[in-house]
Amino acid sequence: MRQPDNVLLAGIVGSTAYGLAGPGSDVDRLGLFATPTVTLHGLDMPTESVVSSKPDATFHEARKYCALALGGNPTVSELMWLPGELYEVRHPLGDELIAIRAAFLSAKRTRDAYLGYATQQFRRLEARGDGSFSADTRKRTAKHARHLLRLCSQGLELYTTGDLVIRLENPQRYRDFGDRVAAGDVGHARDTMARYEAAFDEGPSVLPEEPDRAVVEDWLLRVRAAYFDEAGPIAARPLGGKPSRTPGRTC
């Protein structure tokens, strides 16, 4: 696996983090890095994301990461809420990011990102899922369905408590739900979505109407100041290779 220099925060996400991983599941990694500030001053924008596969890993530059998280992106946001043992790199600036994670939250964007997306995807499952498709398609549908139920569950907890719990309390519930939907029980999916929509409507949310962009920008400016004297392009390097001049601490 390859990662950029100046990684501020990185960890294991996805099914492994949720407790839904099976024998054949991939181990997904997510992180963010700081581009040398001087490279932001030229004609060409520096690399915004570094992506690799087998194993799957995605690293976003700090500014892009902040923009995605401010938009409520669940996949990106969960990096700030991982259980401690799942972090693989934690630079002091990464710890600062975790400390301000609540600044990224807002009620409407959380509802749209979790419930809104899940509802849209469930309608697609409802339109095509009658249990008559191939075994391979049923397997993919089951995985899709259980992750959509996860989004509803995690999103509602975040919306009502302000806390995003990554590790699922009862993973088997999500597996059973996925299998049932993949077998063609679209009515169960429809009823589940209706219950979650009603739960969101019961509100009010503990989250603010808008994220605290000033707090997020202050963190990003500290990142830019910390890497102001760094020069040269972002160069990918293997994990375990020679560390950058301002390495994160490895957990």
Rank of each mutant, 00 (worst) to 15 (best):
S25W: 06
V76H: 06
L70T: 10
S25E: 12
M80L: 14
L79R: 03
A67R: 11
S134V: 04
T58R: 08
L151A: 10
R29Y: 13
V50T: 05
K139E: 13
Y65N: 05
L158R: 05
G22L: 03
K54S: 10
L20C: 04
D136G: 09
S106F: 06
F104Q: 15
D28R: 02
N73L: 13
K64P: 00
G71P: 10
D130C: 15
L158F: 08
D136V: 08
T160V: 03
S77P: 01
T58E: 03
I100V: 11
H144N: 07
D28F: 05
S153T: 15
G129S: 10
S106P: 08
S77V: 11
R146K: 10
R150S: 08
T137R: 06
L151D: 06
D112A: 15
H91V: 12
L82S: 06
R111V: 06
G71D: 08
D112V: 12
P74S: 05
F122V: 14
A102E: 14
R124M: 02
L70M: 12
P83W: 04
L82Q: 00
I100Y: 02
G116H: 10
L148V: 08
D26A: 05
G42H: 14
V89M: 01
A102I: 02
W81A: 05
A145H: 08
R109S: 14
R128E: 01
P83N: 09
N73F: 14
A99M: 04
S25D: 12
K143G: 02
K64H: 05
L148T: 04
A135N: 09
L97K: 04
Y159S: 03
G72N: 15
I100S: 03
L40G: 13
C152M: 15
R150P: 03
C66D: 03
M80W: 04
L156I: 13
S53P: 00
H144E: 11
L115N: 12
A107M: 13
M80C: 01
E96H: 04
E61S: 03
L30N: 01
V27G: 04
T160F: 01
H60L: 05
L149D: 06
Y114L: 05
A127H: 12
L82T: 00
K54T: 03
L148D: 11
T137Q: 09
K139S: 07
E48W: 01
T110Y: 08
A62K: 12
A107N: 12
K108F: 10
Q120E: 09
T37N: 07
T141C: 01
P92H: 02
K54P: 02
T35R: 08
